[in-house]
Design a protein around this nucleic acid. Structure first.
Length: 777
DNA sequence: GAGCACTGC
């Protein structure tokens, strides 16, 4: 056997024959070639890898839905017109105050500089570094949409006889839906064509999942990155656009990395597919790390003169000063230090000024809340009162609301205990003091183990900067870092981009579906290691998305169009086959799973758990989580009276349930279009009839077509051992099968936290594993 | 016996 590390990757597949042999019912099976080729045990401890770009955000107009709503309608309206327009739109409701506030933005003075840069026919890429509050997201599209290069034109793409229309619209991408929609609302008011019901014409629109508002005559279109990637599938040259503005690139989402790869391809193609009409690209970042972007767009050096075509403009932000305090030396107990610091700030710092403290997770927040509330009882009467507000993603809407409201009572300080959610996703108003523990929980995919880890990890410098910036939104503030200055200096500059810490399965499928033959040579700012890509290719082949020579199959093309991870796409395709015939049920299940973290709210107290446990008996099924999701959706949609009331009673996550319903509608529509379903489907509500066990087995078997490798068998000692890699896994406590012993299990997720957990688990028979694997060969 | 945060024609 060859020794580790010297063998070229392609030859490594013959390794560890023993680890890839499965004995089921006395029959030995080789999973070689389809399984993890190097399934040596890898320590599952957190590792800190080099990080590349930064995480801060310009979120002046982007905040939580809660605070965004509050902001948008509080502005005084006056009639007036702006001089910033050559053609007056039909609907004129320009607001002098709006124009004035626009002119006060730091970016306003760079207006002609930005316009001039892109008027230069040799300049197709503009990099804009604008700090928080510079106004870049709202103003840059308005600076550009009336430029002459932005006009819609007729052109003949090479190899085509027909003229097509090219350009006319500016796309501007955002990582989050709320950002895309609230920015579109704001910009539409600024240009004088506010979005609203019964307004078919307008200059500004947006397009996000489940919500597309694109008026006739739209010149500026806000999109999420994912939506533009989907458009790219239909229109690889992005012909409807004259420019694409990529905002918040420093967040380095997986989608944005793919997006700029495709943009670079369009740029380096010489615009043949656009009849020679250029596509201008504006890259906007909140951090000054321009080099990665510059290098990406001008690479390989000498192959073209891209370096001359790329310009950089830097804009100062508008932010109040924040005084930063470090600990003199590392603290021994972070949780204890957080508590002490929060109380010290409360006693020493004047009102007004709320406190925002960054914790790593829900558990830490809950225990800290308890302790602070206890302590608050014993405060002297001349000390302000305390209102503690937890803030984390899994918290219900009502639970989060307090964090965004003023403390309410007089002589009271709000203390918000938050996870990373408060770093970029939402803005907490009223904060003057920030406490930063220096850590965050980060999910990281481990391709060798085919599993994820979720562990508290040290943050990056840009993350620390972003956290401290939260103290200076409304006035001068203070940030207390619970680590030393030298510890800060040891942080990486920026966080590891998502593409380097996630499963690239769907990313590779996306590339293949958009005609990228050689995935390894696709231009990326950061390239995952070839091992990860090879595994993804192998698994896509296993799922039937790629043929033996790596070309995309018809099934793969369908999977790429579906807005769900590739393995679920494979399940849907299998469900359409006559032997399974369960597309409707599979959609119900997949909708529940992909709607968010979980549709079941997790409960704190044991009494509440027991109480709801009894109520949930009516939807829980012994077959496991998949069938439990199915009955949940069937019960929910079968509910005649009040669905929200039903959610409350069973402690279901209402937001995720509604999202699941949206996904269900979308998937049903797409499956009808893709001929995976024949309509018409029965309308809701349908009377609830529990699914019979035979049918339940068929559905679970169908899921094995996507997750056949995510299986484990019960060992004699009562533990579960994975078929792939032979690791011990425990059934996660959130699963209905937690604590139960079944012959074998299939799981849809595999996460390491304090141990190896299988999540979304179903009971299976061992011979089903054989069937699922045999059906592949 | 446990849950960082986003997101998709």
């Amino acid at each position: 056997m060859p020794s580790a590390g010297v063998e070229p990757p392609a030859k490594r597949r013959k390794w560890q024959k023993d680890a890839n042999m499965v004995t089921i019912g006395g029959k030995a099976f080789s999973l070689e070639g389809y399984l993890d080729p190097t399934s040596r045990s890898e320590p599952t401890k957190a590792t800190t890898l080099p990080e590349t770009l930064a995480t801060t955000a310009d979120d002046k107009t982007k905040c939580s839905a809660l605070s965004a709503e509050k902001k948008s309608d509080s502005r005084p309206r006056k009639d007036g017109r702006t001089g910033d327009r050559t053609r007056a739109p039909k609907i004129v409701a320009e607001d002098a105050a709006l124009l004035k506030s626009r002119q006060e933005l730091p970016i306003w003075h760079h207006r002609s500089e930005i316009q001039a840069a892109l008027r230069n026919p040799d300049c197709n890429v503009l990099v804009l570094v604008g700090e928080t509050g510079s106004g870049k997201s709202t103003q840059v599209p308005q600076f550009l949409y009336q430029e002459s290069w932005c006009r819609r034109r007729k052109a003949k793409p090479s190899g085509s006889q027909d003229e097509v229309a090219v350009g006319g619209t500016i796309a501007i991408t955002q990582p989050r839906r709320v950002a895309a929609t609230t920015l579109a609302q704001r910009v539409s008011r600024e240009v004088g064509t506010p979005l609203g019901k019964g307004k078919p014409d307008g200059l500004v629109g947006y397009s996000v999942r489940f919500d597309h508002v694109v008026p006739r005559g739209t010149k500026i279109k806000f999109l999420t990155e994912g939506t533009l990637l989907q458009e790219l599938l239909r229109d690889p040259q992005l012909r409807q656009y004259s420019a694409v503005i990529v905002d918040e690139i420093h967040e380095r989402s997986l989608d944005v990395d793919l997006l700029v790869g495709f943009l670079k391809q369009i740029l380096t193609d010489g615009f043949h597919g656009r009849g020679g009409i250029p596509l201008k690209v504006v890259i906007m970042s909140a951090t000054a790390d321009v080099d990665v972007i510059r290098k990406f767009f001008t690479n390989p050096p000498g192959s073209d003169n891209m370096s001359e075509r790329l310009q950089v403009v830097r804009i100062k932000g508008r932010q109040y000063p924040v005084e930063i305090m470090h600990e003199p030396r590392p603290v021994p107990d972070i949780q204890d230090a957080l508590m002490k610091r929060i109380l010290k700030i409360h006693l020493e710092e004047p009102l007004p000024g709320d406190i925002l403290a960054f914790f790593t997770g829900q558990e830490e927040i809950e225990s800290a809340q308890k302790l602070i509330e206890e302590h608050a009882q014993s405060l002297a009467s001349n000390v302000p009162k305390i209102k503690v507000c937890p803030l984390y993603g899994q918290l219900s809407m009502e639970g989060q609301r307090d964090a965004f409201m003023p403390a309410g009572a007089p002589f009271t300080r709000k203390i918000v205990l938050a996870t990373n959610i408060a770093e970029t996703s939402v803005t907490v108003p009223g904060v003057r003091y920030v406490v930063d523990c220096g850590k965050a929980k980060v999910k990281k995919y481990r391709p060798r183990l085919g599993m994820e880890s979720l562990l508290a990890t040290v943050i990056s410098k840009s993350s620390a900067l972003q956290r401290s910036g939260r103290a200076g939104r409304e006035g001068p503030g203070k940030c207390f870092r619970l680590y030393s200055e030298s510890t800060f200096e040891s942080f990486q500059d920026s966080d590891l981009p998502e593409i380097l810490r996630s499963d690239v399965l769907s990313a590779v499928l996306t590339m293949k579906a958009r005609g990228v033959g050689d995935v390894l040579s696709f231009p990326l700012m950061d390239t995952p290691d070839s091992d990860s890509i090879e595994r993804a290719l192998l698994q896509l082949h296993y799922l039937g998305a790629l043929s033996g020579d790596g070309a995309i199959t018809l099934a793969g093309e369908t999977m790429a169009k579906l807005p769900i991870p590739a393995p679920y796409g494979a399940v849907l395709l299998a469900a359409a086959r006559p032997e399974f015939d369960c597309v409707v049920e599979a959609i119900d299940i997949i909708s529940c799973i992909t709607s968010g973290e979980d549709i079941f709210l997790q409960l704190q107290s044991e009494e509440a758990q027991e109480e709801v446990g009894a109520l949930r008996k009516e939807i829980q099924r012994r077959e496991g989580d998949i069938i439990t999701y199915l009955t949940s959706m069937q019960r929910y949609t079968g509910e005649n009276a009040d669905r929200n009331e039903w959610c409350k009673r069973l402690r279901m996550n209402m937001r995720n349930m509604r999202q699941a319903l949206n996904i269900r509608r979308q998937l049903r529509g797409m499956c009808l279009k893709e001929k995976l379903l024949t309509g018409p489907l029965p309308a809701d509500p349908q009377p609830f009839t529990p699914i019979d066990p035979v049918r339940a087995d068929i559905i679970v078997k169908c899921f094995m077509r996507g997750f056949g490798l995510k299986t484990a068998m019960l060992a004699p000692d009562g533990s579960y051992v994975t078929v792939q890699g032979k690791h011990v896994v425990a059934i996660h406590p959130a699963s209905v099968l937690h604590g139960q012993k079944k012959e074998a299990i299939m799981f849809l997720e595999h996460v390491f936290t304090n141990k190896n957990y299988a999540k979304r688990v179903s009971a299976i028979r061992a011979n089903w594993i054989v069937e699922a694997l045999e059906s592949r060969y």
